[in-house]
Design a protein around this nucleic acid. Sequence first.
DNA 1: CTGAAATAATCAGTGCCCTGATTAATAGCT
DNA 2: AGCTATTAATCAGGGCACTGATTATTTCAG
Lengths: 154, 154
Amino acid sequence: MAAVDLTTHPGHLARRLQQAHYLLWNTMVSEEITSPQFAVLNALVAEPGLDQRTVGERVGLDRSTVAEVISRLTRRGLLDKVRDPQDGRRFLLRLTDDGVRTHRKLTVRTARMNQIFLAPLCVEEQAVFFDLIRRVADAAEGLRNPAESLATQA
Amino acid sequence: MAAVDLTTHPGHLARRLQQAHYLLWNTMVSEEITSPQFAVLNALVAEPGLDQRTVGERVGLDRSTVAEVISRLTRRGLLDKVRDPQDGRRFLLRLTDDGVRTHRKLTVRTARMNQIFLAPLCVEEQAVFFDLIRRVADAAEGLRNPAESLATQA
DNA sequence: CTGAAATAATCAGTGCCCTGATTAATAGCT
DNA sequence: AGCTATTAATCAGGGCACTGATTATTTCAG
C-alpha cells in the first residue's frame, strides 16, 4: 500500500514533457540534429567564436555533455574548432557555411513544431507556462550556486 | 544573425526543468535510486505482479528503458522477477521486503523535495503548473497514438 | 494440428546527462 | 623565474531514452 500519485510529482511531469517534446522534434524537425545540438548552433550564431565552456553555460549543458555535442557537430562538418592563439587551453568555435544553412532551416521547422506542441494552450496560458517553468528551474539552479551576485562584501 | 531566443522554446525549458529536478533529487532524495527507478517501485507497490511492459506503460518508460531500470533494481535486490506460469513470455514483477522499505523511505524524502522544488510557486500556481504541463504532454503523446479510444466502430 | 501473425523481452547502436579524475595550459604570488 | 592555484578540455563510468532487429512464446486461422 501507500503508493503515490505521480501526476502531482513535478519531476515525473518534467520527464514526460521532455519525452513528448523529443518525439515531436524527431518527427517534425530533424532525425539527425537533436534539440541540444540546435541550441549549440544557435548560441554560436548569436556569438561566434565562443569557447566550449561558455557555449555550455549559454545553453545549459555541462562540460562533458557539451563536449560530446560539439564533437558530433564537428564530425558532421557544421562546426569549426580552432585553438585560441591567445589561450592554448581554449578552442574557439564557429559555424561552417553548412552549419549556418542547417541552423536557418531548422529555425523555421522549430517554430512550426513549437506551435503544434503548445497548441493545447491559449496564448495567455502559454505565457504562464513559460513563466512558471522558468521560475521553478531558475530557483532550483540557484540552490546549486550558493551565491554569484554577492559581489563585493566583507 | 537570426539567432533565436531559447527561453521561449518549450523543449529547452523542459530540458532545463528536468536537469534542475535531477540535481535536487540527487542531493535531497538519493544518489543510488533515481527518479525513474522510484517510479517503477511505486507502480509495483500499487499493482504487484505487473509485467515489464505494463510497468513501462504506467510510468511512461519505453520497452528498452524499462528493461534497463528493472535490471538495475533486480541487481540491487529491490525487485523479484519470476516467469509467468500462464504466459512464458512475461515476467511477473514484485517488490522484495527491501524494495518496500526503500520505497517507503524515498516516499518521505520525495515529498520534502517536491515542496522545495515547487516553493517558488504559490499553491494556486502549482495547480496551474501541473495542469498546463500535463495538457501539453498528453496532447503530444496523443499525436503518436493516432487512436486508442475509438473502441467499437465500423 | 500446423503455419502465420502477434506479443514480451532482449540486444545493438546512438545520443543526452551527470560525477569524479586527469591532462595541458595559463595566471598569480613570492 | 619558479611554484601553486585555477581553468579548459578530455576521459572513464553509470544511468536514461529512443529505434530497429532478433528471439521465444503464444494465439489464431485454416
